[in-house]
């Protein structure tokens, strides 16, 4: 079987965690299939990154050029298409991140290679690729196979395969860029950092987080009051920010903040993976949701399957009682 390729993802000079997850996945697959893993690093000023990566793949293919300082789907696509056409890898692994999301379908379509996205796991049996992925708001898993072909592209969801250390010594191949002219039709301008709000939810010991289940903005004061009673701050999941009910700096999840409080109370949050990655490191998680199969209950320590508007007032009065008893 031909090589497995994994694309190194970096941003603002640092290798991102997904890279090590992709390389772990790639090493395991290569070992089973008796083939080699090649890490592809497109960057600028790559010496430090090469050091960080060389134990994690059999081969490290490096193109160091200013063109790759920041991610640009178009320059990456031109470059990777050239590499893939020359090397004919069996499988190309890319992160299902803002980066891979932008790149994979275009790259694979250009080369007419079957691809699939946002996978939790990849298996190879007799040169057939089978992936596990989620559908229907993360409430069901699916097994999906890809149309038979000599090559495949798969994007892997962040956090689905824990990164492991490697003990390989990569052969390092440096190449020249195949990009002769920088594309005019898409240009990176700048990064814009998130605005800093008045409350930093990443510093709080207790976060009371609210989701779609709170129904209406008019219910927020009740929940804010509950957060105050518990001694915490109010956070939320994406739909609450999308609706304009709370500012972006309160959002917990992959496109918002990652929090690690002592206690996280999730109210009316079903637990899409984008939310889970932002809060799963909390010491204790309590979830309240009406749907007994909500994915949040797979992450929580304690769950209540009921209407949050019944639970919140009852719990609040118990906490007040306990406080008063304590004096």
């Amino acid at each position: 079987m031909n090589d497995i390729l994994a694309l190194v993802e970096h941003r603002q000079g640092a290798i991102r965690d997904i890279t090590y997850e992709l390389l772990t996945c790639g090493r395991k697959l290569a070992e089973k299939q008796n083939t080699k893993l090649t890490a592809v690093l497109l960057g600028h000023g790559t010496d430090k990154m090469i050091e960080q990566l060389k134990s994690k793949a059999h081969r490290l293919l490096v193109i160091d050029n200013e063109l790759y300082k920041e991610f640009n789907a178009e320059t990456y696509q031109i470059t990777l298409a050239d590499i893939i056409q020359k090397q004919n890898p069996f499988l190309i692994l890319i992160g299902h991140t803002a980066f891979g999301w932008d790149l994979c379908p275009a790259l694979a379509t250009q080369l007419r290679i079957p691809f699939t996205t946002d996978c939790l796991d990849v298996e190879i049996t007799d040169s057939i690729i089978k992936v596990t992925r989620q559908m229907f708001d993360g409430k069901l898993n699916a097994h999906v196979t890809l149309r038979e072909h000599p090559s495949y592209v798969v994007t892997l969801r962040s956090g689905s395969i824990p990164a492991e250390d490697g003990n390989l010594t990569a052969e390092i191949n440096k190449m020249e860029t195949p990009v002769t002219v920088e594309p005019e039709y898409r240009k990176f301008i700048e990064y814009i950092e998130a605005a800093i709000g008045e409350v930093d939810i990443t510093k709080a010991d207790i976060v009371v987080s609210v989701g779609r289940g709170i129904k209406d903005q008019s219910n927020l004061p009740l929940l804010e009051d509950f957060a105050n009673t518990v001694g915490g701050v109010l956070g939320c999941s994406r739909p609450v920010v999308d609706a304009g009910w709370l500012p972006k700096d309160r959002q917990v999840g992959s496109s918002g903040k990652t929090v690690k409080p002592k206690l996280y109370i999730a109210l009316g949050i079903s637990g899409a993976f984008q939310h889970i990655v932002g809060m799963k490191a909390a010491d204790t998680i309590i979830a309240v949701n009406k749907d007994p199969n909500a994915p949040i209950f797979n992450e929580a320590d304690y769950g209540i399957v009921d209407d949050l508007f019944k639970v919140v007032p009852a719990l609040k009065s118990k906490i007040v009682e306990l406080r008063q008893a304590k004096g």
């Binding site: 941003r11 803002a98 039709y185 301008i189 990064y191 998130a194 972006k248 992959s254 496109s255 903040k257």
Partner: peptide, 15 residues
């Protein structure tokens, strides 16, 4: 503006 992870945005120009 494209939304990246962790609240970061990418500002870019397309024709």
């Amino acid at each position: 503006h494209r939304e990246l992870e962790g609240g970061l945005l990418e500002h870019l120009e397309i024709v």
